[in-house]
């Protein structure tokens, strides 16, 4: 059986809010290492990969592999019934028809219990290769969100150009053009504003802003975001969570499309 207790319901609420416009139905694969999710979006241009390690939960118990096939719209409806600070416990049998959610208020003596009916989802499992990226950019997640939003008002696409010590986001639209450059920036006083660019070779790739704006819905999960780029392979956008957990998005580049 599965029993996984989260100190704050907000983590799961934010994860589901961040991915539900990309993926409708997906399996939450539970085993003794934690709860994982991997799904392509409907257009097969983007892939979502989430890992909530067992250490994210306290306690965490999962005796055998269980796939919880959940409609994310339904999941979001139920998660909205939880307060952000509620303690959330997920429970399921070994061959479950439903997943149970219990929300407990730490301040009030309130316990809410919900069940979500599960679905059989035949999902293709894809292997994500270990990749040495040519450029890895770490920057404030809010800054990346603002850049994507601003540029999406001008254009459908953005070119991300990484070179030594600088990264440039460039768009060309019908009404005009835009470009935002960020340089390596390190501050002891405000580390949350740090920008770090690691580069083995310069990279320039173009991506659909519609998807990037969508990924940025995860900004509330982490103060920083990591962008990993290599020529001709999907961009990796990673939000790191506590206990080595993560929410990752992959997006195929546009090349002469």
């Amino acid at each position: 059986m599965l029993e996984a207790r989260l100190e704050q319901a907000s983590i799961l609420k934010k994860v589901v809010d961040a991915i539900k416009d990309l993926v409708q139905d997906c399996n939450f694969d539970c085993n003794d290492s934690g709860i994982a999710l991997q799904a392509m979006d409907n257009s097969h241009v983007a892939l979502v990969s989430m890992m909530l390690k067992s250490d994210t939960f306290s306690p965490f118990r999962c005796d055998r592999n269980i796939a919880l096939g959940i409609n994310l719209n339904s999941f979001q409806k139920v998660l909205r019934c939880a307060q952000n600070e509620d303690i959330l416990t997920l429970k399921a049998d070994d061959s479950p028809d439903v997943v149970s959610l219990v929300f407990e208020s730490s301040e009030q003596d309130r316990i809410s219990e919900y069940d979500i009916k599960l679905m059989d989802i035949d999902q293709e499992h894809l292997g994500i290769p270990d990749t040495e990226y040519a450029a890895t950019i770490t920057m404030p997640s809010g800054e990346f969100q603002r850049i994507c939003r601003d540029l999406s008002a001008l254009s459908e696409s953005v070119a991300i150009e990484a070179e030594k010590n600088a990264v440039k986001f460039v768009c060309n639209g019908d009404i005009g053009n835009g470009a935002i450059s960020l340089r390596n920036h390190s501050s002891v006083e405000k580390p949350e504003q740090n920008v770090n660019i690691e580069l083995s070779e310069p990279v320039a790739l173009t991506f659909s802003l519609k998807y990037l704006v969508n990924f940025c819905k995860a900004s509330g999960l982490s103060g920083s975001v990591k962008l990993c780029l290599s020529n001709e392979v999907p961009l990796l956008v990673e939000y790191e969570l506590a206990s080595n957990s993560y929410l990752r998005f992959y997006l195929a580049p546009k090349i002469g499309d």
Partner: peptide, 14 residues
């Protein structure tokens, strides 16, 4: 599309 092929080609089916 070409983008689909690039994404699917990167992730090998297990």
């Amino acid at each position: 599309s070409a983008q689909q092929a690039r994404l699917e080609g990167f992730f090998k089916a297990v």
